[in-house]
């Protein structure tokens, strides 16, 4: 398989000189995201995030399985990421690159370990039947900042998803098809999102957000901060690279909070638009058999 083309020395010198002068190649500010678009599919649990030329699609599916024997009260929640040759010919099928491993690891830490999804609510019969929620992440086009785009897609898809309604009568468990009962949303606790910072310069003194593929290839180190809109940090990952000043990390955290607030607002707004589009004539509330808690 061909390797990803590396930027030439000229490109590198030009890019770094431009950064020193305070310019990015596409004319954005250092702390500016590219054009972000979030779309939901016709089916529940499909989110398509376009960030500049990066495009990521997440799809959520649910099925009933047997829980792990050591966790009889918890549902199963998995996030699968696979980079296909569609994103770049350098990615091979069935041979995960380092980037892919880091991506799935980070999503796992951000969404799963921060308890964004209440896995106990996925339990149907303790030790016998639980919901298994699975998120498949498809990278369609890779032009940098996969991390932030993927995290947004996964979170958006999970919040958009509806699982089939169930009921328990004595010992019998009934799972209703979408034709019988309107599906119900997942029990969602908070909305963590990732913001990735890339550092440039000999001591990592320049910081960029939402880097393109070229910018990503030239970084000296990077740091991903996951937090929700209330400013609760779920994880900070800085995997190797040039050491960065503590003060600039604190600055990054405050920029991240501001960005996450913007992204959360966008997400809420898009979800509201989508539910309005689906709820023609205001009949959805009557279809639902779910009780307000």
């Amino acid at each position: 398989m061909p390797r990803e083309a590396e930027p030439s020395l000229n490109e590198k010198a030009f890019f770094l000189q431009a950064l020193q002068d305070g310019h990015r190649l596409d004319g954005r500010k250092f702390e500016q995201f590219r054009q972000l678009d979030l779309q939901f599919g016709d089916q529940y649990g499909v989110a398509d995030v376009t960030l500049g030329k990066t495009r990521v699609l997440a799809k959520v599916s649910a099925e009933v399985t047997v829980p792990y024997p050591d966790r009889p009260f918890d549902g199963i929640f998995t996030i699968t990421t696979e980079l296909s040759p569609m994103a770049s010919p350098a990615f091979e099928v069935n041979r995960p690159t380092e980037q892919e491993v880091l991506l799935s690891r980070l999503l796992e830490k951000t969404v799963r370990r921060s308890n964004a999804l209440d896995t106990e609510s996925l339990c149907l019969i303790a030790g016998q039947k639980v919901w298994s929620i699975r998120v498949d992440l498809h990278v369609l086009s890779h032009d940098g900042n996969l991390m932030d785009a993927s995290c947004l897609a996964v979170v958006a898809a999970l919040r958009h998803f509806r699982k089939p309604d169930t009921s328990m009568e004595g010992e019998t468990l009934t799972i209703y098809t979408p034709a019988e009962r309107e599906p119900v949303p997942l029990s969602w606790l908070h909305t963590p999102l990732c913001i990735t910072f890339s550092f440039y310069g000999d001591e990592g003194e320049m910081t960029l957000v939402d880097t393109t593929l070229l910018e990503e290839q030239l970084k000296v180190s990077s740091c991903t901060i996951s937090l929700n809109k209330h400013g609760e940090i779920c994880q900070v990952a800085k995997l190797g690279g040039t050491p960065v000043d503590a003060v600039s990390l604190v600055q990054c955290a405050s920029i991240a909070l501001q960005k996450v607030k913007e992204l959360s607002t966008l997400l809420d707004q898009k979800l509201a638009e989508d539910s309005k589009r689906r709820n023609k004539g205001g009949l959805l509330a009557e279809l639902s058999a779910e009780n307000a808690r």
Binding site: K59, V60, T80, E82, R134
Partner: peptide, 8 residues
């Protein structure tokens, strides 16, 4: 290479 929407 054919990849399904959900699952491997």
């Amino acid at each position: 290479i054919v990849r399904p929407a959900a699952g491997v």
